[in-house]
């Protein structure tokens, strides 16, 4: 599904990713762990096409398509979703209006008709209920005045409504209490299926107790330095990044 080869990324002239390789097949859940500043978020942004993340070398191929030639919105329409570490507040735009515009933009890209208002309303209400979101919050401006947990829950509702084939979740677990973590994990696990893939980026092993990955990779200084299965995450939790020869304070 997603094939990243020898990826080099610069941000404001600074080299962040320095030759990263990663292949994710349909149905797989991968976790990327690593210390702060190792390039985890940069990877998420590079995959989803944020401006200012310059690809100087390498390739990202998604379902056989050269992802680097596509705008961020086209990548979304092709089925990629980014769960933000810090979801953005958008005053004046209601969650409902935002989701409707997003769903219809993607349908338009695919050359399909807009969704009927009634069907859309049903879909959003159902997804919000599954993720235990108060329907009143759908009327409120996107993320404005939401707590950290509510923002992440909102990300999960958006993901459930847009139903992507591939999701990158950038530290979706950061700053969450145990209840919020449970909801977020539920959101991720509900997406899990043999046709879909997920890339979980996290600093801590905690989330991986709820979302059990098929593969775990350790990112350090812009490269994947070790890959394994879920036991690698346990090992890191016990022994820290230091035992892999990574200076956690270097960044």
């Amino acid at each position: 599904m997603l094939d990243i080869k020898n990826l080099h990324v610069e941000v404001a002239g600074q080299k962040i990713l320095k030759g990263l390789d990663l292949t994710i097949n349909a149905g797989e859940v991968h976790a990327i762990m690593g210390p702060n500043g190792s390039g985890k978020s940069t990877l998420a942004y590079a995959i989803c096409g944020k401006d200012g993340y310059e690809i100087t070398e390498g390739s990202i191929t998604y379902n056989g398509k050269d992802f680097l030639k596509l705008e961020a919105n086209e990548r979304a329409a092709e089925g990629a979703f980014l769960g933000f570490q810090y979801p953005v507040e958008i005053p004046g735009v209601s969650n409902m209006n935002f989701l409707k515009t997003a769903v219809n933009s993607i349908l338009k890209y695919k050359g399909e008709d807009e969704m009927a208002a009634v069907d859309f309303l049903k879909l959003v209400r159902a997804k919000a209920a599954e993720l235990e979101m108060d329907p009143e919050m759908l009327k409120r401006a996107v993320n404005v005045g939401f707590s950290g947990g509510e923002k992440k829950r909102n990300e999960m509702v958006q993901m459930a409504v847009l139903n992507p084939d591939f999701a990158v979740l950038d530290e979706t677990d950061s700053g969450l209490d145990i209840d919020a973590l449970r909801i977020v994990s539920k959101g991720i696990n509900r997406l899990r299926s043999p046709e879909k893939s997920i890339l979980v980026i996290t600093h801590y092993q905690r989330l991986l107790d709820y979302v059990v990955p098929d593969f775990v990779h350790v990112l350090a200084d812009g490269k994947i330095i070790k890959s394994g299965n879920k036991s690698l995450a346990m090992e890191l939790e016990k022994q820290g990044y230091g035992h892999l020869g990574i200076d956690e304070n270097a960044a």
């Binding site: 989803c48 705008e71 961020a72 919105n73 979304a76 958008i90 209006n97 935002f98 515009t101 997003a102």
Partner: peptide
């Protein structure tokens, strides 16, 4: 943020300005 949810640049811009 809006583009990552599928809105093209023009649509994202209109939504923000309208708000």
């Amino acid at each position: 943020y809006l583009k990552s949810r599928g809105l093209d640049r023009a649509a994202a811009k209109s939504l923000l300005v309208e708000a």
